[in-house]
């Protein structure tokens, strides 16, 4: 089946088995290795992308779900102004450990920043609850996202 979508600002046309996992199409066919696979069953959020306006786990979607949509991944986000601010906050707190879950956290936290952005610990905990990190204990991730919310509020 022929599908087309826009990924990180680039238009893509592909001829694929529509039932293949979207994650495999992005990683294997388009070599977008900033999307990670960990659990493969939608539990951990390592493969999170923004599909149109929602953060979703690409390991439990089929390729056909992307047809006609706009996709944003960690790599695309890092090239935006808000993405750079968020990246700098994660970096400044030394929150990153093994980093395997981080592109997923980055995508989800970016989505929170552009849709809500209130520096509220409770809201951020809830927003990030679909992403699992085994290294950090989450504390510095919370601090980073709060810091990014505050920087954006100061800047606007």
């Amino acid at each position: 089946m022929k599908i087309s979508f826009n990924i990180n600002g680039r238009n893509v046309k592909l001829d694929v088995d529509p039932m293949r996992r979207l994650l495999d199409v992005l990683r294997d066919d388009l070599e977008l290795t900033d999307i990670k696979e960990s659990c493969g069953e939608g539990e951990c959020g390592a493969c999170t992308i923004i599909l149109d306006d929602k953060p979703v786990t690409s390991c439990i979607l089929n390729a056909v779900h992307a047809d006609g949509k706009k996709i944003l991944t960690a790599n695309g986000i890092s090239k935006t102004r808000i993405g750079e601010i968020l990246l700098d906050c994660f970096d400044q707190t030394n929150s990153v450990q093994c980093g395997f879950c981080f592109p997923g956290f980055y995508v989800t936290a970016y989505h929170y920043l552009i849709t809500d952005g209130e520096p509220s610990l409770e809201k951020i905990r809830y927003a990030l609850s679909g992403n699992i990190c085994r290294c950090t204990g989450y504390k510095k991730i919370f601090e980073s996202v709060i810091m990014a919310c505050e920087r954006l509020q100061e800047g606007s």
Binding site: S78, L87, D91, N94, V96, Y106
Partner: peptide
């Protein structure tokens, strides 16, 4: 507490883990 040498590339996903090598 200087920043980690590998943090930025881990966040934006360009850091290479074993499954990213071809």
């Amino acid at each position: 507490s200087p920043r980690k040498v590998d943090a930025r590339s881990k966040i934006n996903g360009s850091h290479k883990f074993i499954d990213d090598y071809i």
